[in-house]
Design a protein around this nucleic acid. Structure first.
Lengths: 143, 143
DNA sequence: ATAATTTCTATAATTTTGGTAGAAAAAGTC
DNA sequence: GACTTTTTCTACCAAAATTATAGAAATTAT
């Protein structure tokens, strides 16, 4: 159905929580879970992915928690979403032409490639800082 | 993982096969399956969706087969992909804000909405005719 | 009637998603 | 050094979606 999973959605929201406190304090998993209404157990699978991709730093033990490794304006949404959802090609053959013998003569592959690149570019042009300062007015409807 | 399913991929390829013969002859499911290397049985689930969405016309019985209902330059990829994959919002709350009480104050929702719209617009601007005449040179790599 | 063709209903295997449970590892505090 | 807090890892599991297959019914041309 071409959907972003809870991993991507929850993970992005977690990043936003951590970013909110950038420069102030480390943020606890527990607090992210509470503020965002997400199961603590489930979040504890998602957040380590953000760390292993170098987007956040974790401190264990008392006084622990999470911090950004870089200021929010140096982190793009592409990095975040890719860390959580994997490579953003909409069909496998875009990134790995070998999976299909027809790859180099397939007109539909070109479409999926183009579409993937549009998506990527859009995500690359938005930083976590942009997201933080974004106004939320639910104007026009989706169409 | 944000991927297009076989339904979307096979279905688009089927449309291309039918479009190839637009104005000439009706195309058989059997032939589409053979030309595209797709299971006939499986395709026979996918193609009716294209018909119920008004993109193709089916004739049953001997001398049957499929035809476009409109010339290829009047069919957009948005229509095709939406017929196969369902509405193209990347998260549910974009199209149905009621599914989440936080929708109207959620900064991440705005991102998913923007992204969905970018995707839509791109697909809307490509017609089946464009796809037909597209050159396939596998130039630059995905990055 | 018969042959060709699409379409519908039912079933099923496999994979992905969305979790839960519990223990281990690390670090600060008393 | 024991204790508490906190992240992280391993294992498991249920539900849903994906990717099909089988077979029969419906439709149409000859």
């Amino acid at each position: 159905m071409i959907k972003v999973s809870t991993k991507g959605r929850y993970g992005l929201r977690a990043m936003l929580e951590i970013a909110k406190n950038h420069g102030k304090r480390a943020v606890l998993l527990k607090d992210i879970a509470k503020n965002q209404g997400i199961s603590e157990k489930y979040l504890s699978h998602i957040i380590p992915q953000l760390r292993s991709h170098g987007l956040i730093k974790a401190n264990r033990g008392a006084k622990g928690g999470y911090m950004l490794t870089r200021p929010p304006n140096k982190i793009t949404l592409r990095e975040i979403v890719e860390a959580l959802e994997g490579p953003l090609w909409l069909v496998e053959c875009v990134g790995a032409p070998d999976v299909c013998p027809m790859s180099n003569s397939c007109k539909t592959r070109n479409i999926w490639k183009r579409l993937s690149q549009v998506l990527l570019k859009e995500l690359e042009n938005i930083s976590l800082a942009d997201l933080l300062k974004a106004e939320v007015k639910d104007g026009e409807n989706y169409q």
